[in-house]
C-alpha cells in the first residue's frame, strides 16, 4: 500500500489506539462524576479511529471499522437518547424519573465535595452512553467517508 505511513508511525499506532479507545469509554462512563461526558468521550474515541485511518488508509482498516455497523450504532444511540427523553413524559419531556429512586443509577448523592458514587444520577449516565455512542459512530463515519472520498478525487484528477 502506498498510502501507509512509515514503520515508526505504524508501530506507535498499534501500541496506542486501544488505550485511547478505553480512555474515551472511561470519560463516557464517568460523565456524571468527573469533567467530560458523552460528547467529549466520543470525540476522544473517534480520534483513535482517525489515527488508525490516517496510518493504515481506509482499505487497511476495512476489517476493523465497517461503515454499516457504525451507522447502525449511530442511529441506535440517537433512538436511545430520544426514548429516554420520552420515558419521562409522565411529568415533562426530559424529566429525570430515575433519580433518587433507589433502583438502577438511583442512589442519592452525598451533598458537598465527595469522591462520587457511580450508581447515581438517574437517566444522566444512560444519556451519556447514548450520546457517546452517537458521537463516536458519527465522527467515525465522517472520517471513513472523507478518506474514501479524497482517494476518489485524487484518482479522478490524475486520470
Amino acid at each position: 500500500m502506498k498510502n501507509e505511513m512509515s514503520r515508526i508511525v505504524r508501530t506507535v499506532t498499534t501500541l496506542i489506539y486501544g488505550f485511547i479507545i478505553v480512555y474515551g469509554f472511561y470519560v463516557i462512563a464517568h460523565g456524571h462524576l468527573t469533567p467530560g461526558g458523552g460528547f467529549q468521550g466520543g470525540a476522544i474515541a473517534a480520534s483513535a479511529f482517525a489515527l488508525l485511518v490516517v496510518t493504515y488508509g481506509d482499505q487497511g482498516v476495512k476489517d476493523f471499522l465497517k461503515k454499516d455497523i457504525l451507522s447502525l450504532v449511530e442511529s441506535t444511540g440517537l433512538v436511545l437518547f430520544i426514548a429516554f427523553a420520552f420515558f419521562g413524559l409522565g411529568v415533562t419531556f426530559f424529566y429525570n424519573f430515575m433519580a433518587n429512586s433507589g433502583g438502577l443509577f438511583g442512589n442519592s448523592a452525598i451533598i458537598g465535595i465527595n469522591p462520587g458514587d457511580l450508581n447515581t444520577g438517574g437517566t444522566i449516565p444512560i444519556m451519556n452512553i447514548a450520546v457517546g455512542l452517537e458521537v463516536l459512530a458519527a465522527l467515525g463515519v465522517i472520517i471513513l467517508t472523507m478518506s474514501a472520498g479524497s482517494k476518489n478525487t485524487k484518482k479522478k484528477e490524475n486520470s
Binding site: G31, H32, L33, T34, P35, G37, N96, A99, N100, F105, G106, N107, S108, A109, I111, G112, N114, G116, T120, G121, G122, I124, N128
Partner: peptide
C-alpha cells in the same frame, strides 16, 4: 446535586 444525584453540575 440533591435534585438529580449527579456530582458533575455541568453534565447535569
Amino acid at each position: 446535586q440533591a435534585e438529580t444525584g449527579a456530582n458533575n453540575v455541568v453534565t447535569t
